[in-house]
Simulated scan of single mutants.
Amino acid sequence: MTMTRRQFAGTSLAAAGAAALTRKGRPSPVRAGRLLILGGTGFIGPHMVRHALERGHEVTLFNRGRTNPGLFPGVETLIGDRDGALDALRGSEWDYVIDNSGYVPRLVRDSANLLRDSVGRYLFTSTGSVYDFDRDELPEDARLLEVTDPDSEDVGRYYGPLKVMCEEAVQEIFGDRGTIARLHVVAGPGDPTDRFTYWPVRIHHGDEVIAPGDMDNPVQFIDVRDLAEFNMHLLEQDTGGIFNVAGPTLDETRMDEFLYGIRAVTTSRVSFTWVDEDFLANREPPARYPLWYSQNGPARALARVRSHRGVEAGLKFRPLAVTARETLDWFLGESEERRRQLQLNLERDARILAAWSRRGRADT
C-alpha cells in the first residue's frame, strides 16, 4: 500500500523522540518537511517562514499576494483567496499547515475541509481573546466567550467569539491532528501594533516616564521569534492540543521588573514616576498605557495567562533585554514616516506629571 505524505509524516515524526538536540535544546526534525502557511507575509508569518527555512523545511505560502509581495522570492507562493478561491491548494500535499489568517469560521472551515486529506497536522493561530477575562487567571481550560451571534462575520465586533468558532471548526475537522496556539500580545521586530514597542522607544527617549499603577502589576507578551520556534516545534513533534503562548517568563513579570529591564538596554537618562491607577483613570480622557491591565477590573486576567502546558511542550522564552534591544534597534531603523506612527503622548504625560506633583504637594 502506498503511504500518503500525511501518513509518512505521522510515522516518521512519531519516531523522533530520540532526535539530536539543537543548540536551543529542541529536537531536530527527522527530515525536512513540507510546510504550508496560510498568510505568511504580515508580522508573525515572516518570522515563521524564516525559522522553518532555517530548520530545513520546504515552505509554501498561500495568500492574495497583496501584503509584502516578493518578500520571499525563493519560496513558492500560491495566489488565491480564502473566500471562494482555494483552487491553488488542490492537488498538493503538505506535512503541516500553519493557519495565520483565519478569522471567520466559514472560511477556516472551507480551508480545513479542503486540506483534511492532504495535510498531516493543522496548526491554527488563535488568540487569548477567546477567553472571558473576568477571572483571576487564564489556563487553557478557562471559560471561553459566549457566541451570541453565530451568523455574524463582523470581526471587529466579534473577534473573540469568531475565533472560538474557528477553533471549533479545526478541532471538528482535524481531530487530534489539530493544534491550537492562543497568542498573547506579540512583540518583536516588525510589530505594527506598537503595544510592546512603545516602552523601549519611550524609555529610550529618556526624561521622566510615567509608570502606571502598582509596581507589582503583572505584564505579559510573547516574542514573535519564540512564537515561531514554538509553533514549528509543535509541528515537528506532531503535538496536538491547545496551548497558551504568553511570556516573557513562566512566572509573573512585575511592572517594575519590566520597566527597569528595558531601561537596562539603553544609555538614556530616564526616571520613573509611579502614578496611581485611579489618578490616571480620572484624566479626561483616561490615560492608558500599553500592556498595563488593572488588577481591579474585569480584564485583570489578561496579565495572568498561564503557559505551563506550553512550557511542558517545549515553549521557551528569550530574555526581556533581548526582545527590548532588538525591537528598539528595528524601530530606530524604520523610516521617519513609520516612526511617527508611534504616539508617545509626551505633552499629555507632562500634564499628568505636573498634576500628580501638585497633588503630592497638597497632601503634605
Rank of each mutant, 00 (worst) to 15 (best):
D149W: 14
P189K: 05
S335M: 06
A228E: 14
F62D: 07
E336P: 03
H308I: 10
E229C: 05
P286G: 06
R182Q: 11
M232H: 05
R269I: 09
I242A: 12
D276G: 05
Y289R: 06
L234Q: 11
E146D: 15
V104Q: 14
H205E: 12
W199H: 13
R23S: 15
L235V: 10
V322D: 14
A350W: 05
D194W: 11
Y96S: 11
F174T: 02
C166G: 09
F174H: 02
R135G: 12
D154I: 10
V155C: 03
A169H: 12
D363W: 11
G45T: 03
R157N: 13
P218S: 00
G120M: 00
R309A: 13
H308P: 03
L36V: 02
L332S: 06
A16N: 11
R50A: 11
T22D: 15
R338K: 13
E252D: 07
E334L: 09
G247N: 02
F221M: 07
E326Y: 08
F279W: 04
D141N: 14
Y159K: 11
L183T: 14
A112R: 11
D149A: 15
N345I: 04
G65F: 10
D238W: 15
R195E: 07
P286H: 04
P29F: 01
G297M: 14
D214M: 15
L227C: 03
Y96Q: 10
T364F: 03
P248A: 03
P46F: 00
E140H: 05
E334H: 10
A355C: 06
E312W: 06
T267F: 12
D141E: 15
R116G: 03
H205S: 15
A301P: 01
E137S: 12
I210Q: 06
V275K: 06
A112D: 09
G261R: 07
E153F: 06
Y289H: 10
V170R: 03
L21F: 14
D110T: 11
M255Q: 09
A20P: 12
T2R: 04
A303L: 00
G120Y: 00
Q295M: 13
D278V: 11
E312C: 13
A169E: 14
F317M: 07
F8Y: 14
P69M: 09
F243G: 09
L114F: 08
G128N: 07
G240R: 08
E208H: 03
A264W: 06
V104L: 07
G175Q: 01
D117M: 01
I180S: 04
P290N: 14
P298N: 15
L353D: 09
R143C: 08
R50F: 02
L353A: 10
E93N: 14
A362G: 08
V275D: 03
Y293G: 01
L71S: 10
R23D: 08
L280M: 07
E58N: 01
A85G: 10
Y159T: 14
M215V: 04
R157V: 08
H308R: 15
G45R: 04
N244W: 00
D83P: 11
R135Y: 06
